[in-house]
Design a protein around this nucleic acid. Structure first.
Length: 273
DNA sequence: GCGACAG
DNA sequence: ATCTTGTCGC
């Protein structure tokens, strides 16, 4: 058989693949530009398939996992994995440049198309309005939302202790997201628009995806799978240990790069050349 | 200058 | 995120 070239469930727009050679200042400029392309609008229809993603770091490698669940049943429909070499340091505000390669690798392997993707990080609640969730949205064209475990930027009024309690996340006088209690008396999650969704919908779907745990099921399962794979506690019946070729650790830009100001220190920390 | 800083 | 065991609490 042939010619029945069924296109991938999720097409990756390579124009948004992170250019790993850019320095922080250049990335910042790109983020501001791309932030203008983010669309904040109501979902076209209630989602039937929702996905959650997570990335596990291990030995200079980023292992991504995406789990798709049927909604609102929350039954697993598909699980895919992706991988990429870590060629970018962790810099607050530039997370997508570090994690997107592995995530796109995984997303490109999906055989079903999610109606919504819950990313583990910020969406619009970002210094330049372009967190990981927004980046994933533009790269896949899918509706996305950011679901972070801690705040990157912004503040919010005290939150009631009951599950469902919600307060706006404010940054520079703007509502960039929402603090959401997904479980009684447990630290809240920070939800924000990623792409093609409204904040109210994002909050609604995150809450409806949380059953007995703090994190939404898609993300919780993706995290467990990614972590297990990274720690090698999964039954690797037919798959040998991943080859680990030699690679130099050029994980930091010139320590005197004038354009690096204002982006915080690199993961390697100060003092390293 | 100092503090903050998704994963 | 990662390095890492047990432990206090519902």
């Amino acid at each position: 058989m042939m010619s029945e070239s069924s296109r991938p469930a999720v097409a990756i727009d390579r124009q948004y693949a992170p250019d790993q050679t850019l320095d922080p200042a250049q990335v910042g400029v790109l983020q501001r530009e791309w932030a203008r392309r983010v669309v904040e609008e109501p979902l076209a229809a209630p989602p039937t398939l929702i996905a959650g993603s997570d990335v596990h770091m291990r030995d200079d490698r980023a292992l991504a996992t995406v789990v798709v669940l049927r909604f609102p049943e929350l039954e697993v429909v598909e699980t895919v994995q992706g991988e990429a070499a870590l060629r970018f340091p962790y810099v607050p505000g530039l997370l997508s440049w570090r994690e997107l390669p592995a995530l796109l690798d995984a997303l490109g392997r999906l055989t079903v198309r999610p109606d919504l993707l819950l990313a583990d990080g910020q969406g619009l609640a970002h210094p330049r309005g372009f967190g990981l969730a927004c980046h994933l949205g533009l790269a896949t064209g899918l509706p996305t939302l950011g679901c972070a475990k801690s705040i990157l930027r912004g503040d919010h009024p005290p939150l009631a202790e009951e599950r469902g309690a919600r307060e706006p996340l404010i940054y520079r006088g703007r509502v960039v997201g929402a603090a959401l209690r997904t479980k009684d008396r447990v630290k809240p999650l920070y939800v924000s628009v990623g792409h093609r969704i409204t904040l109210d919908e994002a909050v609604d779907y995150v809450l409806r995806s949380c059953t007995k745990y703090r994190l939404p099921e898609p993300n919780r399962l993706a995290h467990a799978t990614a972590q297990a794979r990274g720690t090698r506690i999964l039954v690797a019946v037919a798959s040998p240990v991943h080859p680990c070729p030699k690679r130099d650790a050029t994980m930091k830009w010139s320590s005197r790069s004038p354009s690096s100001a204002g982006f915080g220190k690199a993961a390697a920390g100060p003092g390293l050349v």
